[in-house]
């Protein structure tokens, strides 16, 4: 393992960020979810950004999530049921936005509305031929989708969002807390021959389940509004970090530890 590998937190630095294209100044989608590959090598690692209603809907759940997915189905050319996917190897920058190389195609609803509504209003330039010139061919998107499906059918992938909020049990089976964030380190396998994958390095576990941490779990940094930080920490109770080595299994929608809660490191010590 290299010493300077980049470390991120999935929820804090990746999920729900804007995805923009590097080559042209265009907003593409949100990081609605991440595809994590599990059955390959010692560590699970992030393989793709998933987006669109089919990725966001399940995260929201309930009627709103279902409605979102159904509306999307109306506007899709292919009924594959796979979400929009951008391979992680295309990511060039992770900052206030996630930038990806190339010119990914727009999502289905955007294409449909551009063609059938906005393109028909007088004063709008016709988008069709322009779109074809500027963005990648449909085949590439189809390839992405097919790859996502193949991975999923192998049972080798899961979605990052399903790891968050999982119940954590210690070595004797007692519930000790909930996953509030997933730590990623960029020293996984080589992706598309260009960059290393973010591998799953461990879980941030909070005693009490109280929504997001907003980044306040990170060691005392200057400048956080003290009151907000105090409230957030208070709500979550004790927060510890379970390294991947201390995790026994990810089965049954839970995270099972090899060690008792007290053996886990306090987050502040990292």
């Amino acid at each position: 393992m290299t010493e300077h590998a980049r470390t991120l937190h999935a929820r804090l630095h990746l999920l729900d960020r804007q995805v923009a294209s590097t080559d042209e100044d265009r907003l593409i989608c949100k990081v609605d979810d991440l595809e994590v590959r599990t059955g390959d090598g010692p560590f699970p690692y992030v393989t793709a950004i998933l987006s669109g209603p089919l990725a966001l809907g399940p995260r929201i759940g309930g009627v709103a999530g279902w409605l979102m997915a159904e509306v999307d189905r109306l506007f899709r050319d292919d009924p594959s049921g796979e979400p929009y996917r951008i391979a992680m190897g295309r990511v060039t920058e992770i900052g206030s936005a996630v930038r990806v190389a190339g010119q990914p195609r727009d999502l289905a609803l955007e294409r449909w509305l551009a063609r059938n509504v906005v393109g028909r209003i007088p004063g709008a330039p016709r988008p069709e031929h322009e779109e074809d010139a500027a963005t990648e061919p449909e085949a590439l998107e189809a390839q992405e989708v097919a790859e996502g499906r193949a991975r999923r059918e192998d049972g080798e992938t899961l979605r990052m969002s399903t790891l968050l909020a999982r119940v954590v049990r210690d070595d004797s089976g007692n519930v000790v807390g909930n996953v509030v964030d997933v730590r990623l380190v960029q020293d996984g396998p080589l992706l598309d021959g260009v960059q290393l994958a973010f591998r799953l390095a461990g879980f941030v576990v909070a005693r009490r389940r109280a929504g997001q941490l907003f980044g306040y779990e990170r060691a005392h940094r200057d400048g956080h509004p003290a009151l907000v930080a105090a409230v957030v920490r208070r709500l979550h109770g004790e927060i510890r970090y379970a390294d991947w080595d201390e995790v026994a299994s990810l089965g049954d929608g839970e995270v099972r530890l090899r060690v008792p809660w007290e053996r886990l490191r306090m987050l502040d010590d990292l």
Partner: peptide
Amino acid sequence: SQYFGWQWGKYVQPARAARFHV
């Protein structure tokens, strides 16, 4: 648009931000 990550704004052509204009 910003919630869903759609292209928005008047700095691009309307057909490039179709969902926003709709």
